[in-house]
Simulated scan of single mutants.
Amino acid sequence: AFYTVDLWMRGGVTLAVATLTVLAVLAWRNGRTYCNTICPVGTVLGFFARFAWLKPVIDTSKCNGCGLCARNCKAACIDSKNHSIDYSRCVDCMECLAKCHRGAISYSVLRPVRKENPVKPATCKVDADASRRQFLGATATVAVAAVANAREKTVDGGLAAITDKKIPSRHTRIVPPGAVSLRNMASHCTACQLCVSVCPNGVLRPSADLLTLMQPESSYERGYCRPECTKCSEVCPAGAIRPISVADKSSVQIGHAVWVRENCIPLTDGVECGNCARHCPVGAITMVASDPSVEGSRKIPVVNTERCIGCGACENLCPSRPFSAIYVEGHEVHRTI
């Protein structure tokens, strides 16, 4: 009997997982396939939707067939080629109205389509020429913008290519000053995202770790934690980030900088840099000769971990791409220096 119950439970779990997987694939590929096709509630609502008075209507005189409405339709009910909408599947989410840049879709009464007189050949030629000019003009605009964008991202002062920085692999995640410790943050934070929304430098972002899902953590690809900013500690309602003054923040060590020799520009490209030392707000980085026995050798940074507060200025402003030559490793428990 125990074996039968265990087998039944395993079968039920397997069936549930398989069903969830199928629904996830359908939702990812076709939007609301389950709601429109399988769910009995959606089927009944779709039946009555056919007789609705107000519906999304496509104006064929304005539509250029770009297909933007169909691509953004979660119910997959728009046929942009034939300018038709399957109202039995439409849920009136109005996404198509917001996405159409030509105002070709409106929420109004569906009127019967009248047959119009055939268009004269001369008119067809004019419309074709106008469409061709419009297409060539749009293509030229896109090409010019792409070239300009590529040219802007070519070099950064002649030192390194401007590409988006990647997040380094940290052994310990970083939480802002006032959080006290990782344990305090994990036990008090409600993931309300208030601190993330008020961070002016783009340092705080929701965690993707399952153990701390949606709780804030610091990362320095878009900015660094400026010593004069205490906004996150001012808005936290749960005590996960406790109120802290500007003076106290400058003496709180949330992490320490780590230098990566393989990424440092003076050694890889043979040019002087020192960006990390120049912008360190607490003077924790010193530039020293890479080889004291060789006169005129390139200077490399040396980090005073006792003085570093982990603000991330060095990591953010390092010109090395895609990974910085210096990054911040977090501390489980913050300390005052």
Rank of each mutant, 00 (worst) to 15 (best):
V144Y: 03
V147S: 10
T141P: 11
A143M: 10
T163D: 07
T141W: 13
I162Q: 06
V142N: 08
V175T: 06
T163V: 07
V175F: 02
R173A: 01
A148Y: 04
D164L: 07
R151P: 05
R151F: 08
K166L: 11
V155L: 05
A161D: 07
I174K: 00
H171C: 07
V142P: 02
S169A: 09
K166H: 14
S169T: 15
T141F: 15
A138R: 12
I167T: 06
V142E: 12
A150G: 14
A160D: 04
P168Y: 10
I162E: 01
G158Y: 01
I174A: 00
T154K: 09
V175P: 01
R170D: 03
N149E: 09
R173P: 01
E152T: 10
V155N: 13
T141K: 08
R173K: 05
K165Y: 05
P168D: 08
T154V: 08
P177L: 05
A145R: 00
P176D: 06
N149F: 14
V175R: 01
A146R: 02
A148F: 06
G157D: 15
G157L: 15
A140Q: 08
V155R: 09
K153L: 15
A138E: 07
I174H: 00
G157Y: 12
G157S: 12
P168A: 03
A138V: 14
D156H: 07
A138Q: 12
V144F: 10
T139C: 13
A160C: 03
A146E: 09
I167S: 11
I162S: 03
A161R: 11
E152P: 01
P177S: 02
A145N: 04
K165I: 04
V175C: 05
G157M: 13
A145S: 13
N149K: 14
A179G: 08
T172N: 12
S169P: 04
P176C: 00
K166P: 03
V175S: 02
R151E: 13
D156L: 04
A150F: 14
I167V: 13
P177I: 00
V147G: 06
A143W: 12
T172V: 15
D156T: 10
A161S: 04
V175A: 05
V144M: 14
R170F: 02
A179N: 01
A179R: 00
V142D: 03
V155E: 10
H171W: 03
D164P: 02
D156C: 09
A138M: 13
H171V: 08
A160P: 06
P168M: 07
H171Y: 09
A146Y: 07
A161C: 04
H171S: 08
T141Y: 15
R151A: 15
V155P: 05
K166M: 10
T172Y: 13
D164V: 05
A179D: 01
T141A: 13
L159R: 04
A143I: 09
T172E: 10
S169W: 00
T141H: 14
T139Y: 11
E152L: 14
T139E: 05
D156G: 06
A150P: 08
A143Q: 11
P176L: 02
S169N: 14
V147D: 08
R151S: 12
G158A: 06
A160Q: 04
T154H: 10
I167Q: 09
A143N: 04
K166F: 07
A145M: 12
H171A: 06
A150Q: 12
A143Y: 11
A140V: 09
N149V: 14
R170S: 02
A145F: 10
A179E: 03
A148C: 08
E152S: 09
